[in-house]
Computed example of a mutant assay.
Amino acid sequence: MKKLFSDEDLIKNLSLYYLNRHLKKKPIEKYHRTIDASMLHDRDKYKKKSEILLLNSFMHHFPEITFENLTCESPDFIATFNNKKIGIELTEVINHLEMKKAESTLNKIFRQAEILLEQEDKGKYRGIYFVEFHSHFNFENLEEQQENILSIYKSIRKNKPSGCVKSLRKSHHRRNVFITHEYNMSLFDELCSAKIVELIEKKNEKFPYYDRSVDECWLVIVSDMNSLASRYTFIQDKEHLSAVKSPFHKIFHLENLCGGLTNIK
């Protein structure tokens, strides 16, 4: 069963599109329009748009690649590369599973603060706000959530940290009010190679059910560096990846912030 994203996660990924100065914007915009014009349900459209954004850095490594089917399943996309029909299966590796649920809760808090600002004056507050919290901040406490939402709202309104907000910075966004967690990462935050191997083994089991009309099927494993749950600074025991066995023709690990690509197979 495919991993389901919350609506908040999907909207955040789409909004982060405007943050990345290195996006191949013309093809991305074209692909998004194609997805919008499809018969997919709105939620599935968000999911497909989010997935193609994760592959943007991948397209920098393969500039000749063109996507011809954006709405298929098993694999997620069908593309053309070097006169071959390539199936691309995309999967995200979660580095901090315990953070996934917490991050979804945090995104809901951000969305409520965004709504308050948009209702007051969307044009005035349009932008991307990076918020860092005090160490005592508890976003999982239901009794404190409304107070935390108001603290974020007041901090942005006054352009000055208030309540649970420790620091705040703003970046340009030409469309919406968008709040996200400040990018802060430990220098010793490893991603265990065993998590990547486990994902490959799970995908290997599904390989016989993928579209057989393609010439090759590639597996792209992404660490979404815009997600607190997926961030890492180095892959632990990276040499273990070279021993991986798989029916996929090519396997890559991609970190989507700087575009670092590891060729596993």
Score class of each variant (00 low, 15 high):
R175Q: 12
P63Y: 06
S246K: 00
S6F: 02
Q146Y: 05
N256E: 10
V214C: 15
I94V: 10
L54N: 08
V93F: 03
I52V: 07
L55E: 12
I52R: 00
S193M: 06
C72Q: 01
K48S: 09
K238V: 13
A102E: 15
H96N: 09
N69C: 04
S38I: 01
V165Q: 13
F81W: 07
K24H: 14
T71K: 00
L54M: 09
D76R: 00
V177D: 14
K124W: 00
L187S: 11
Q146M: 06
P161C: 02
I115W: 01
F77M: 00
K122C: 08
L117W: 04
P63I: 07
V177H: 06
C258W: 03
I88M: 01
F110E: 10
I128N: 09
P75V: 01
N148H: 15
Y183T: 06
M59D: 11
A79T: 03
Y153H: 14
F130V: 02
I109Q: 08
F137M: 10
S193Q: 05
E144R: 09
K158G: 03
E132G: 08
E73A: 04
F62M: 05
R174N: 15
H60T: 12
A102R: 02
I264E: 15
K12I: 14
M185C: 11
G260D: 15
L53H: 06
H134A: 11
L106M: 09
T105L: 12
D237K: 02
R175A: 14
K84E: 11
K245F: 05
G127S: 10
A102T: 09
L90E: 12
K85N: 05
P27F: 09
L257M: 10
L23W: 09
N138Q: 07
K48M: 02
F5P: 03
L168T: 13
K160P: 03
Y232Q: 00
K265A: 11
Y232H: 06
S246D: 12
G259K: 00
M39A: 11
L191V: 00
A79S: 03
D9W: 06
Q112H: 02
S50M: 08
D36V: 02
K160V: 03
I264H: 07
S104A: 14
E216F: 00
R212S: 12
T80G: 03
V131S: 10
K45N: 04
K170F: 10
N159M: 14
K160Y: 14
H22L: 13
I52G: 07
